[in-house]
Computed example of a mutant assay.
Amino acid sequence: MILPIVAYGDPVLRKKATAINQDYPKLDALIDNMFETMYGARGIGLAAPQVGVAIRLFLVDATPFEDDEDLSEEEQALCADFKKVFINANILEEEGDEWAFNEGCLSIPNINEDVFRQPTITIEYYDENFVKHTDTFDGIVARIIQHEYDHIEGILFTDKLSVLKKRLLKTKLANISKGKIDVSYRMKFPNAKKKR
């Protein structure tokens, strides 16, 4: 089932999400619905807060990058079969010199900006079967994970922009929260005027 994606301005996107255990009700259905929602919106990552659920859950599918000519062959190969669920994730370490990459977000449609992030992360998380992992990821895969991880921490990619960039985007962001935007997938706008 495709869920509506919560737009910029909704308080759920600013909450630090809550950890869950394997008894969380209908977790498998939520994960399936999140994948379907992400694919329906042509995304590469989606966090539970983006569908209005403030829990520490996000998923990533980097396979669209397997044909990206801007990436090295090694990175393309890493993306080819990279599809994972992250539950109760905790980034243990971020390393390396920050690099810029143009990011967007399903909750902030039609806005893309360069964001600086470190290239290597070590992250502890549970998969969908509640098996614990500690893994190190690099490059574009690390970046996608960092972006989704920020969502469960209540952080948006726009928070990482300069004061000037934020000021320039202020009207666009306000319009997104009001639903004054063309978007090809279902969304829930926190400040949309109710139709009478």
Rank of each mutant, 00 (worst) to 15 (best):
L164P: 06
T134D: 07
F130G: 13
E113W: 07
L71H: 06
I181E: 07
K16N: 09
E36Y: 04
N102Q: 14
I111E: 05
F157S: 02
R117Q: 14
A80L: 11
I31D: 05
G40A: 12
L78W: 14
Q76K: 13
A89V: 03
V163R: 15
L13Q: 02
V163P: 09
A77P: 11
R196M: 15
R143V: 03
L173Y: 08
E74V: 07
F130S: 12
T122M: 12
K160L: 14
G43A: 05
N88M: 07
N88Q: 08
P190M: 08
A29Q: 15
L27E: 09
E69C: 09
Y24I: 03
A29T: 10
F86E: 11
G139W: 03
E75D: 13
Y39W: 01
A19Q: 11
K16I: 05
M187Y: 11
K16M: 07
K188R: 15
L13S: 01
I140Y: 09
K83R: 12
R143S: 09
S72R: 00
E69I: 15
L57W: 00
A47F: 01
I55L: 06
I155Q: 14
F101K: 08
F82P: 07
P64W: 00
K26Q: 12
E98Q: 14
T134H: 07
P4L: 02
I140F: 10
I181K: 04
